[in-house]
Design a protein around this nucleic acid. Structure first.
Length: 798
DNA sequence: GAGCACTGC
């Protein structure tokens, strides 16, 4: 190593040391540091999921035909048609008693058959009386489609009703369904359309929209723009039990808004705002307490509510402003079968159960297996196919279908295709099948009892992705998947004691994520930095987590030394990006860097799924892919490599799909990159980060050499990701400068296996070890300039 | 030598 370089490195390390010593943190006024600083990180290392464990019992290879009865019943197999929209709760036979002679309206009859239908009057009455209704309804009750229609003709409902959904697909399909039921034109900008939807990249609302389905993120953005929600008469928050960060923010904002309205602090609204909170499971008590001022402990609430299973409405004494309502679901019984003894090797156990079910149970009845991730899915897929070859001819065939979200769309669609004759489907799925995708035809569920969960470690600024035991509610959700069409069975690959040891509910995301983005949103909505500590969270995150997020925002210049909101913070909040990536964009727009367009391309690629297809399984293709992509690879690392790939795609104008196939690049991902890129460029334009096109602009860094250009781009990333710098150690490992964490370059990086003095990375995940992804190798000088400017406050960075 | 699932002016 050259002496000069080493010296420079030391300078850099010194700067960062000063930086991390807390001098700066102390200047943040609202942060009350506890005397005992978090000295050492909580144990992050865990045994890798599914690490080799001594096998306790050998698997019996199915060779002798045993199940005679299995062959007899297969004739009757008949696939029940089912739609993959949550908006059609069990198209069961309805309207048998529909009066003949009158013109039959099948849609209306279907609505009348929904469990929620008889409750329409009491729901209207509840909202006439109170402004808040907490409605719990199980799967298939029809609440998402019917409640907005029940309310539409109420006298207080002059404006629009918003219905939030956690997922875009659900928002769109619900809007289509409700438009159909209301005999309106399908959602769109046409004047007649009363039902619309609004999701990222797709706004299908018009001047006459009365019911608007939108994703939680979209409503949040609207709240930031107009905190009085003038446009709406009612806001329905659906699927609250999933407890996304966004839904928690929405609930907090709504609570603030309701109390401001009640206390006359807001003047714009004429009519009160009605809020309906809908949830699948029994968090009623918590929600009622949350909206019911929160000051009084309402011990009786829970009991009162639980005794109210059959009737509809309860006004509790403590919380007179809140109505509650319970709607029964429509679900067939599912038998639960536990393991007698716990097992470590649940992949093998799943294998045994699949074949036991297949031998014992008649068709139809597909099997849905919940596993943790792609690796286990592919392992089990191979095993099942292997053992299926030994199946006697009298038994039906097995069709194994993997299902995880990284799977190409056409492969995911296979689960909806009709099952071939005398065949049983075995779907091996991740959590996608728990909420996002409804797999038709399932009567048997096998649940491994684990799922991979992302958690953020405040002390390290590191997220971990580890397989952990699921909660009781998640286990019950999985089990419910067996009873959508007929009575079913659920095999749990754990003991009953194991189940009893699960947490009741999955920990809400807000308690296990980096809060900097949430804080930025709150700040943009007019909440002062000091007030974030008293924001009404349904589950308040620990103070330390908020402090850490404030410190992060300070890192990137969203919070000033005086603990005030910086102007840049409001700009950053307007980007659909993490605060760090927003900072990178702002940096790229400065005259010294002048590389906004290229940085937008890279940021677009970083904020979508991986554009490089993963071909780990296909050995031969892997080498081809390496060769096909080599043209994009850049010495400086992943960021410039992404830029080359995105630009290559943009330059291809004839057949981009073929271009992607040729270069082993995901077309789906690239289409998304282009959408994000367009959106970001428009935002930059609107936020005046980009000079008006009328003025004569130099092409980006026209005067810079390629090396200088790369340096500038990486300096932008260094500005957003100051803590994400690691240094090569004498033993060949890398250690982060600030938190002294040993990290390894992820195998997906173009720098994998390379040694370089410094690494700058944009992602940091702990799985079986601490990996860094999105890695570049900047010049030390480039890093130092940024650090000096930021940490030491040097005006000009020289 | 490896990536649970969602989302966003």
């Amino acid at each position: 190593m050259a002496k000069g370089k080493d010296k420079q490195g030391n300078t850099l390390a010194r700067i960062l040391k000063a930086y991390s010593s807390g001098d700066l943190d102390d200047k943040l006024k609202p942060v009350e540091k506890k005397p005992g600083k978090q000295a050492h990180p909580r144990g992050t290392k865990r045994a890798r999921d599914g690490s080799p464990v001594e096998e306790t019992h050998a698997i019996t290879k199915p060779k002798e035909p045993r199940g005679v009865e299995a062959g007899l019943k297969e004739r009757q197999e008949k696939r029940i048609k089912s739609e993959n929209t949550k908006s059609t709760p069990n198209p069961k036979p309805f309207g048998k008693g529909a009066q003949k002679g009158q013109k039959p309206n099948p849609l209306l009859e279907a609505r009348k058959a929904l469990p929620i239908w008889p409750h329409a009057q009491s729901i209207r009455a509840a909202l006439k009386k109170n402004n808040v209704l907490v409605l719990t309804g199980e799967t298939g009750s029809g609440k998402s489609t019917q409640v907005p229609q029940f309310l539409l003709s109420e006298p207080w409902c002059q404006k629009c009703i918003a219905v939030t959904q956690p997922r875009r697909m659900a928002a769109i399909s619900l809007a289509r369904r409700v438009a159909q039921e209301m005999s309106c034109p399908p959602p769109g900008r046409v004047p007649g359309a009363k039902v619309g939807y609004s999701v990222r990249f797709d706004n299908a609302t018009g001047p006459h929209t009365r019911v608007k389905f939108l994703t939680e993120g979209m409503l949040l953005q609207e709240m930031v723009r107009d905190r009085e929600m003038e446009e709406y008469s009612a806001i329905i928050v659906d699927e609250v039990h999933e407890r996304s960060v966004n839904v928690d923010l929405i609930l907090g904002f709504l609570k603030n808004l309701l109390s401001d309205l009640e206390n006359g602090r807001l003047k714009k609204r004429k009519n009160p705002l009605k809020v309906v909170v809908m949830s699948a499971t029994v968090d009623v008590g918590a929600l009622v307490q949350f909206f019911g001022e929160g000051s009084k402990e309402s011990e009786d609430t829970q009991q009162t509510l639980h005794s109210d299973v059959s009737s509809t409405l309860v006004g509790t004494q403590q919380n007179q402003d809140i109505s509650t309502c319970y709607i029964e679901g429509r679900q067939y019984p599912v038998q639960t079968i536990y393991l007698p003894e716990p097992t470590q090797n649940w992949v093998e156990s799943a294998l045994i159960h699949i074949f036991q079910i297949h031998r014992k149970e008649p068709l139809p009845g597909d099997i849905l297996v919940f596993l943790t991730g792609r690796e286990k899915i592919e392992k089990l897929e191979k095993l099942v196919n292997e053992y299926a070859e030994g199946l006697e001819d009298s038994l039906p065939k097995l069709l194994v279908l993997p299902l995880f979200s990284a799977l190409p769309q056409h492969a995911q669609q296979r689960i909806f295709m009709p099952t071939p004759h005398r065949t049983r489907k075995v779907i091996l799925a991740t959590n996608v099948a728990e909420t996002s995708v409804t797999v038709p035809g399932v009567r048997y569920v096998i649940d491994c009892g684990k799922s991979k969960i992302k958690e953020y470690r405040n002390a390290l600024g590191l997220e971990s992705l580890l397989a952990k035991p699921i909660s009781k509610s998640a286990a019950d959700q999985r089990k419910g998947r067996a009873g959508r069409e007929a009575p079913g069975k659920c095999y749990r690959l754990y003991t009953e004691d194991g189940y009893n040891g699960f947490a009741d509910r999955t920990q809400p995301e807000i308690l296990r994520c980096d809060l900097s983005h949430a804080l930025l949103t709150m700040v943009a909505a007019g909440i002062g930095l000091r007030d974030v500590f008293s924001f009404p969270f349904l589950d308040p995150p620990p103070r330390g987590a908020i402090e850490r997020a404030v410190a992060l925002l300070h890192d990137i210049g969203a919070v000033t030394e005086e603990a005030e909101i910086a102007n840049d913070a409001l700009t950053m909040a307007k980007f659909p990006l993490t605060p760090a990536l927003s900072r990178v964009l702002i940096e790229a727009a400065t005259p010294e860097r002048n590389c906004l367009e290229d940085v937008v391309d890279i940021v677009s690629a970083l904020s979508t799924e991986d554009i490089f297809l993963n071909l780990a399984n296909e050995e031969r293709k892997k080498e081809d892919a390496e060769a096909a992509r080599r043209g994009f690879y850049r010495r400086s690392g992943d960021h410039m490599t992404l830029l080359a790939a995105v630009q290559g795609y943009l330059e291809e104008t004839s057949d981009r799909k073929a271009w992607c196939a040729k270069h082993f690049i995901s077309h789906r991902a690239m289409q998304n990159v282009v959408k994000v890129r367009k959106q970001l460029l428009e935002l930059c334009q609107r936020l005046s980060l980009v000079p008006n096109s009328s003025s004569s602009v130099d092409p980006p860094t026209a005067n810079a050499s390629p090396e200088e250009h790369t340096k500038r781009v990486l300096q932008c990333f260094a500005r957003g990701f100051m803590r994400n710098i690691a240094r090569l150690m004498p033993d060949g490992s890398y250690q982060t400068l600030v938190s002294k964490q040993t990290v390894a370059i992820h195998p997906s990086s173009v720098l994998y296996g390379r040694k370089t003095d410094y690494l700058l990375f944009t992602e940091f995940v702990f799985t079986n070890r601490a990996w860094v992804k999105g890695v570049s190798a900047p010049d030390v000088g480039a890093l130092e300039e940024v650090m000096r400017k930021v940490v030491l406050g040097d005006g000009d960075g020289e």
